[in-house]
């Protein structure tokens, strides 16, 4: 073709092509843009496949479904950026829903019950942080241990079975809405804004990126690595605690079996969102998109009547896909 003199591109053609080209480049240049496109394509395909998909009620459902896992994923993003991992988050969700339920039922009042719940969450964070940061034990192993440990304590506290509880305000958190937006979504967005701000504009956020990037340089540069890493696990546990309160608010019960497998769901969303497993890299906007994509895929399958067991398979495939993409990107 290049031998044909008639096929040479004129300057007019080049100019005409350029805007399209640059739009295409913009959309494919950054990983976040690619994720956004994937999100839109997914919505289009699912709308075509199912008449019930593209409705306001369904979108509300999807977002409501992402609130709990989204809050955990934001925390997990921070943990992964610090070059760590936290597998105990699902258990912390159950633990906190149980503490809230039991203390409310014991008549301690809302304020004290919430405070106890946060104390519970932060003690798990301190426990993880102490072993990981001070004793320098592999975070995977430590949080695998605390995953079982915390779950066990949740069962011991509540005695095995879920228990209902009553609280107007908690109920509102789970099912109420603020100017037409469901409260859990408002809470999730608030958490997102706070964590994103913290990571971008505070000394702490930059230290987390620095530690994830190169822990030894961080130490030699005078960053208090031990303290920062403990704080990372405390923030993670605190967010898992908020997620636990939200879950209890949506179900009106303290459920010791709640949150099973949430660590995997959160990791899927975070890795799909472009956060590096090697640390030092990652953005909360990506995690939000990752959470949305996972929720869309699962919701779409519900809409299409795909049996649960097949959904498990597809979730697994998303993780494998996300990991492969993550490895190829770097």
């Amino acid at each position: 073709m290049s031998n044909n003199p008639n096929s040479t591109t004129t300057s007019e053609e080049l100019v005409a092509k350029k805007p399209l080209n640059s739009l295409f480049q913009l959309l494919t240049s950054s990983y976040l843009a690619k994720l956004s496109i994937a999100c839109v394509v997914l919505i289009m395909v699912l709308s075509y496949l199912s008449p019930y998909f593209f409705t306001i009620t369904n979108f509300k459902d999807i977002l409501l479904g992402t609130a709990v896992i989204g809050i955990i994923s934001f925390g997990m993003t921070v943990v992964l950026i610090s070059d760590g991992i936290d597998l105990s988050v699902g258990s912390v969700v159950a633990f906190c829903s149980v503490i809230l339920c039991v203390s409310l039922n014991a008549g301690l009042g809302l304020t004290i019950s919430l405070m106890l719940t946060f104390v519970g969450a932060i003690s798990v964070g301190l426990f993880n942080g102490f072993f990981i940061s001070v004793l320098k034990i592999n975070p995977f192993i430590i949080t695998l241990g605390s995953m079982s440990l915390v779950r066990g304590i949740a069962y011991i506290i509540i005695g095995g079975q879920p228990q209902p509880f009553e609280s107007e305000i908690i109920r509102f958190m789970g099912t109420g809405s603020i100017v037409g937006i469901p409260a859990p979504i408002v809470i999730m967005i608030a958490v997102l804004v706070i964590i994103a701000f913290m990571m971008k504009y505070t000394q702490f956020g930059r230290n987390v990126y620095a530690i994830g990037n190169n822990q030894e340089t961080a130490r030699l540069s005078g960053i208090n690595v031990v303290k920062t890493r403990i704080l990372v696990y405390c923030i993670m546990a605190l967010l898992a605690g908020i997620a636990g309160i939200l879950l209890a608010a949506q179900t009106y019960a303290g459920i010791p079996a709640a949150g099973n497998g949430y660590e995997l769901d959160a990791l899927t969303a975070v890795i799909l969102g472009g956060t590096s497993l090697k640390g030092g890299e990652g953005r909360l906007a990506g995690t939000l998109l990752g959470t949305l994509i996972v929720a869309l895929v699962l919701n779409g399958q519900n809409m299409l009547g795909v049996p649960y067991f097949y959904q498990l398979v597809s979730k697994g495939l998303i993780i494998v896909f996300a990991m492969t993409v993550a490895m190829k990107r770097t």
Partner: peptide, 25 residues
């Protein structure tokens, strides 16, 4: 291996130690 934060900006590499003088958050 222990002198710089390879993936961070020149500015961050220069300013991180001094920033530690301030409170964590």
């Amino acid at each position: 291996s222990n002198g710089e934060f390879l993936e961070l900006s020149v500015k961050d590499n220069i300013c991180i130690p001094n920033g530690q003088k301030n409170k964590v958050f």
